[in-house]
Design a binder for these strands. Structure first.
Lengths: 245, 245
DNA sequence: CAGTGGTCTAGACCACTGT
DNA sequence: CAGTGGTCTAGACCACTGC
């Protein structure tokens, strides 16, 4: 009768087991981002548990940002938004106060042996190759962000055949549409460095000026690393805020 | 029969109204940080609502970090922990991997007319005076943090009579014990600047070296601003990490 | 109007904590 | 052991969405 998967540990509370189930379904792509998951009533029937328990499981996932409820419409698999990202804090706001997607231009795309940092982030051996993109983004206020992006070649085969002009401004929807690779979460690390000559030239600042270095590892819903990127911007235009409680 | 306060809007869901009630009690100091709030059963009786509703109200506050549950012991008013604080990301870890409280020394304490930034953060007019502390903190690795701290004089009267050596290493417990001012939350803003001569001298770096500037406004449980501080540290030893989802 | 999530109740039983 | 929070059920009614 039970629809539970194998791995489900019967000692765990029901709502946690259901939470795992839902996460597995999302990770496997069975319930893709942007779509609804089954209704509460349906889950109640399928797993033969009470509504309250189903609600509890969904509550936790909504809290974690994996799901989104909409009364009368259903419960949706959420796409992560990168509003919390450091990128937001290089002024990406125009005079009207609207946040706009920065324009970006891919400078190059090539097949490479992964450099150590990328190999580690993407969990690649030295024998597995990766794709490296170089990109320049222009913010609203004219400040620039110089990026290098590494992707595991095995999951993005065919990317090098796409002309550089056909890359979308936003890469994550592009990954999803073209390669079926959905980004579910990411980890960013921020450090301060001083610009070398090449970077300074790209960013339009003086050599040795301080730059903010953002390293990001982006993961799929199943926690597989799908992208590693390293972005640099002038430190002068940087401002970041957190709440503590 | 009802124990509801005046402001309670009867159109709101019960669990939200109870949530407000609990927040008010904490803000007023009736239920102080570190202590338990009444049991679920007691709240059930007092407000004449079902346990599930009480649990729901407490759930949201636990999620927001205001309360902390401990099975068999009770539900406690949480003190904010500053694990997310930018300060933590100057290496404050010793060889054993343990995080230690940095030593600190108060350099001066004086009564001032608040400078504009402090006046704004503390919501003071130019006619209200504030106390200014200057402090130097030493991190585990030997790097330094130069701080200026502003407090509204009205809430910290008598502070200037305390000898500088008697200030505790951690100021927030000190505020609580000596002045009954509990910090409930804080907001920090990080920017990058270059060190002027005086700051460079204090931090032991070269003038014009990049520094990380952390501005913090700390609030009471009732959201009243209680402290504004501005701290500077060498950018080279700074490293910050966030998760996005 | 049917179907969805949102609120609320009432009560059972379990698991942990302190005495 | 009594008292606390933790899990789970079963079902009522409301409010919103889309057809």
């Amino acid at each position: 009768m039970s629809a539970w998967k194998e791995g489900s540990d019967a000692r765990l509370p029901l709502y946690q087991r259901l939470r795992e189930e839902i996460m597995d379904r999302i990770a496997s792509g069975e319930w893709p981002p942007g779509e609804t998951i089954p209704t509460e009533a349906e889950l109640t029937r399928r797993y033969n548990i009470a509504v309250g328990t189903v609600r509890r499981a969904i509550d936790t996932l909504v809290n974690e940002g994996l799901l989104e409820r909409s009364q009368g419409r259903g419960t949706f698999v959420r796409r992560p938004d990168f509003d919390a990202s450091f990128f937001r804090f290089f002024r990406q706001v125009n005079a009207a106060g609207q946040s706009r997607v920065p324009t970006s231009r891919i400078l190059s795309a090539s097949l490479q042996t992964p450099p150590p940092a990328a190999a580690k982030a993407l969990e690649l051996t030295e024998h597995e190759s990766c794709i490296c993109l170089e990109r320049l983004r222009a913010m609203e206020d004219g400040s620039l962000l110089a990026e290098k992006i590494w992707l595991p070649a095995s999951r993005f085969s065919g990317l090098l055949e796409i002309p550089l002009e056909q890359f979308d401004n936003l890469l994550y929807p592009f990954y999803e549409a073209r390669f079926g690779q959905s980004i579910g979460s990411a980890r960013e690390t921020l450090t301060i460095d001083s610009a070398d000559a090449a970077t300074a030239d790209m960013l339009g600042i003086a050599p040795r000026d301080p730059v903010v270095v953002i390293e990001r590892t982006a993961l799929g819903y199943d926690r597989t690393p799908l992208e590693y990127r390293c972005s640099m911007g002038a430190a002068a235009t940087f401002r970041y805020q957190i709440e503590i409680s």
